[in-house]
Amino acid sequence: MIEVIKAGLETSVQDFPGRWGHWEQGFPPSGPFDMWSFRMANLLVGNSPDAAGLECQFSGPHLRFNQETTIALTGGVFKAKLDGKDIPQWESIKVNKGQELITGFAQKGARGYLAFSGGIDAPLVLGSRSTFHLAGIGGINGHALIDGGVIETFEGKQLHGAHVLEKYRPKLPAHKTWEIEVVRGPNDDWIDNIGHDIFFNSEWVLQTRSNRTGYRLTGPELVFAKKAREKGLEHGEHPSNILDHGYPVGSVNLCGQTPIILVSDGPSAGGFINPWTVPSATFWKLAQSKPNDIYKFKEVSLNTAQEMRRKIDQICVEENIST
């Protein structure tokens, strides 16, 4: 059993690939935001990549271990300490009974992934252990970790001294500007060419009001195509309104003039257009960026986007864990 002394900021239980098959009723996939770092954390402690672990956001938890286990911390740079001593990240670490882990704050990047040997034992809700706190399901009692809470884990292997080579880790940028890939569509024809040029040639600032449901961006005004301005009344008044439709996870949802990238816990449908979509392989970048970071969008083809995802999947395998 692991005691939660301090929960950190919305630290949540997630599993890979999250909750699939219930989207029609409005349940998003959830799951770890940065699935690359998450899977590597699991592999480091000898788990299968889908085991449940913790996602830390900006400020991670303070835990006391009442059992011997192996842990690994991946993702952003956190300066975590075990009984006051710095621990390395991207490495499996033996923890003795009674030891305390202070994950601390994200120094670089934004999200850390903490895996425990065996994985977290939380009930499966609609097929997943991932927390979707908006609806109060998954994780531990349907919400993020709480101070004084308890985490149970399954029995697992005890793999110590494993590490992930630098080349198999996502590379955080030195400055706060990110190149974010997007695929055009589904509703790219609602924006005219000038609008697309503005979108691709501008710097977009990530707003503070961004979380696992959506990433709000501040930038210039976009220009809509004729189709968006001259349409049936049922589509709504604003050029960004469309007849209610499903929202792909990762779509850049244009809500008036505010683009919102819909992410892991986002809504499944609504009445705004999605001219571009961030592919799944780029999600780790979203997960690791902080409010006030700058996004520059780059168009990629569907094939490129699918190839990018395959490359990450090929990295996130047991063979790439060095011992």
Partner: peptide, 17 residues
């Protein structure tokens, strides 16, 4: 049909309510 990133497709059958 239009793609929504690498793993979604939007299929439109019409454009009215």
């Amino acid at each position: 049909y239009t793609p929504g990133g690498d793993r979604y497709i939007e299929m439109e059958l019409g454009n009215e309510l």
